[in-house]
């Protein structure tokens, strides 16, 4: 089955995230994954994938590297591991994570190995 990311992506604003996620949670969607990646403009692109009855939906938005993103782990508990991982690999700050490892989930030799600065 071909599932292009573009077909299921919904572009949102960073401030809208918490509201959209609680809406999706209310509809009975489950969190599939959270991915972070660099963009050409040296920003971070975040992808929050949700699924319900085999229908996928990716919430995406871009933030500058020094921004702070609100955690969604108060609504979906399972997000805490993804958010800690993004913090440890990319150095993106995420506020109010349910279980915050404070940068000790992955202790890498190079701090924030996939961040924009190191490239």
């Amino acid at each position: 089955m071909i599932m292009r990311h573009e077909d299921i992506a919904i572009k949102i604003q960073p401030e809208e995230l918490v509201g959209k996620v609680s809406g999706l949670q209310g509809d009975g969607c489950r969190l599939v994954q959270i991915a972070c990646s660099k963009t050409k403009e040296n920003n971070f692109e975040l992808v929050y994938s949700f699924e319900k009855d085999y229908k996928f939906c990716n919430l995406t938005f871009e933030v500058p590297p020094d921004a702070e993103v609100e955690s969604i782990s108060s609504m979906c508990f399972s997000a805490f591991l993804y958010e800690n991982e993004i913090h440890d690999l990319f150095g993106l700050k995420i506020k109010h994570i349910a279980v915050d490892f404070q940068g000790t989930l992955y202790e890498t030799a190079v701090k924030y190995p996939m961040s924009v600065e190191t490239k």
Binding site: M3, R4, H5, V32, Q33, S37, K40, S49, E51, F56
Partner: peptide, 21 residues
């Protein structure tokens, strides 16, 4: 472009998110 794949493994579904330029 970018691709999102969900495939059933023995332990559950694996999600791949690939971005290319």
């Amino acid at each position: 472009g970018s691709s999102f794949q969900c495939v059933e493994q023995a332990r559950g579904d694996v999600a791949y998110y690939l971005k290319a330029n």
